[in-house]
Structure formats: C-alpha cells, structure tokens
Computed example of a mutant assay.
Amino acid sequence: MIVIACPGQGSQTPGFLTEWLSDPADRAFLEEVSQNIGVDLIEHGTISDAETIRDTAIAQPLIVAASLLAWRALARRTDLSAAAVAGHSVGEFGAAAIAGVFSEHDALSLVATRGAAMAQAATEAATSMAAVVGGVEDQVLEAIESFGLTPANRNGGGQIVAAGAEEAIAKLVAEPPRGARVIQLQVAGAFHTDYMASAIPTLQEAASLVTVNDPARVLWTNADGSRITKGTEFRDLLITQVSNPVRWDSCMQSFTEAGITGFIELLPGGALSGIAKRGMRGVPSVAIKTPADLDAAVELITSANE
C-alpha cells in the first residue's frame, strides 16, 4: 500500500511554487483557487517573503493548494486509484479533497476560513510552537508540561512539537530536555491547543454549508490514527482538530499495520518524509518539492503495483 501524505503548516518556503507554474494546467488551477478564496497564491508562492507566508491566513490555503496541485500533476502521470491518503494538521483538508470527502473548491474554501479564524485567534495571546527532536519521549513530555506547554503534535520519529505561551517556548528553547534539541517553528500561534478554541465556531459554521461524502479511498485521521469511513465524522474531527493535538505517531503506526510499502509526501514536501524515514524504517519514501520529484514518485508507485 502506498500512502500519500499532505504536509502541514511550516512546510512552506519562499518561492517554492515557482517551478510549478510552467504547466498551463497548474497555473490555471492556482489562478482559479486564488480567485475563489481571495488570496493570491501565485504571488505568495513565488515572490512573497518568509514573513508574509508565515501569516496563518496565507500559509494554510497556500500549503493545501500546493498539495492538491502536486496530486493533480502526479495523477496525470500514473494510476493513483489504489493510493491511501492522510494529512498532517491543515494537510487533512487536502487529504479530504483527495479522498473525495469534500470537493477541492470546498476544501480550499474551508481552509481559507480556518486560516483566517486561527490567525485571529493567534492575536489574542502571544503564543508559538517549537519542535523537540530527540531525547527520551517520557522525559520530553515531562519537560514540555513542566513549562506549562502542550505537546500539540506527537509526530513520531523522535519529534514532539510543543505549543503555548511565547515566554514558555523561549524557556524550552533555552533549556532543552536532555539529549534533545529544540527548534522554534515559523508559525504564528499555538495551534492545536486551547488557544485556538475561538476559531472553532467560525469553521463549524462554514463546514455546515458544504457537501460531505464518505471517503472513496483509505483515509486516516490525526485524532488517533484510526481509519475513517464516514465523511461526516471526518468533517467533525477537522473542526475540533483546531484545538486538539495531532497524533501523527498514531497515523504512522496505522500505516505500518496496514502494510505500507511506500510513502509519498506531496508539495511542499520534506518534513513528513524525514519523520517517516525515522519512524517507519525500511519504507521507501519520496518528498515532492519540485516537478522533477514526480518521476521518483511514479517509480515508487509503479514498483508497489507490480
């Protein structure tokens, strides 16, 4: 089984969409999405600086649109009918579109609403996030909690992301757990914690207006790594996900139990494939960062289907 993953916020870098605009179909897709949601994704994916695309209201639709663009490009090259899918944090909206739970238009419209609501919630307090890499898991969790922080993303592969007050994050960076290093993330708030609770009603109202279908392919949730069979369940989990921890470690355990044979991370790839190499040793992986990476993804899919 090939698992295709949609990355979450923090995976964007300045200019990462530049090489994707030579294909008229890809440019047209981004132009249409930009018009629909009122965010110029082509500008932000090509010329905007790091601080601009750090803005949650921009970053979230930019990342999800990029993942769907890469999915479309990959689907033009190979048969993806047997691929399973999952997303990390906001990437779950991309996964929802790929699985057919939402249309692409509805998924991106909801992401734009989510991003704006979470950006507003982030202004209510000075908060941030930091990745803790390495160390002993129990000791890392104890250290995170000792600073009054939340383990917002338990990513597996030796990485846990802490979230909470900026002052507490600074202390964690200055005093890392034994055997670990702490890297502050380029995000605008403490996502997947109670600090984001005020964004939920806005997203809930928007989600109530879209058509929801049961997934047409294997789909897992960040909530606990379980497989989702009801579209309405996934919709509801996407709403509460805003203020609840991401359990990517549980997702990877589920991938392993399902017999994963390859892992492909969609644009803007890198972080999840790195975690997969540590957390699912021996499983071949491909991170799609540029159009040139599509060839390696096709080869992996072809090998798995033989």
Rank of each mutant, 00 (worst) to 15 (best):
I2C: 04
I2N: 08
A5G: 10
A5H: 12
T13W: 14
T13D: 13
F16T: 01
F16I: 03
P24I: 08
R27E: 13
F29D: 03
E32F: 05
E32Y: 01
S34E: 08
S34M: 08
D40L: 04
D40V: 04
L41N: 01
I42P: 07
E43F: 15
E43R: 15
G45V: 10
G45S: 02
G45N: 08
D49S: 12
E51P: 13
I53L: 14
T56I: 02
I63P: 02
A65H: 06
A70S: 14
A73P: 00
A75K: 07
R76S: 11
R76H: 08
R77G: 04
D79N: 03
D79K: 01
L80C: 12
S81E: 14
A84N: 11
V85I: 14
A86P: 03
H88V: 05
F93N: 00
A96V: 06
A96S: 07
A99K: 11
V101Y: 03
L108S: 00
L108H: 02
S109H: 14
V111S: 03
V111C: 11
T113Y: 03
G115E: 06
A117I: 08
M118S: 05
Q120A: 13
Q120P: 00
A125D: 11
S128E: 07
A130I: 01
V133T: 05
G134W: 02
G135C: 09
V136S: 12
L141F: 10
E142K: 15
A143K: 05
I144P: 08
I144M: 07
S146G: 11
N153H: 02
R154Q: 15
G158R: 00
G158C: 06
G158N: 08
A162C: 03
A163V: 09
G164M: 06
E166I: 12
E166S: 15
P176F: 00
Q184F: 11
Q186M: 15
H192F: 01
D194C: 12
Y195E: 14
P201T: 10
T202W: 06
L203R: 09
A207P: 00
A207N: 02
A207E: 10
N213G: 01
P215Q: 10
P215A: 06
L219N: 04
W220R: 13
E233I: 08
F234S: 01
V242M: 09
S243K: 05
N244Q: 15
V246K: 09
R247H: 12
S250E: 15
C251V: 15
C251K: 09
Q253G: 15
T256P: 14
E257M: 04
E257H: 11
G259T: 10
I260F: 09
I264P: 02
I264D: 00
P268F: 02
G269T: 05
A271C: 15
G274M: 11
I275F: 10
A276D: 04
G279N: 11
M280T: 05
S285M: 11
S285C: 13
V286W: 01
V286C: 06
D293K: 01
A297T: 02
V298Y: 06
I301N: 11
I301L: 12
S303P: 04
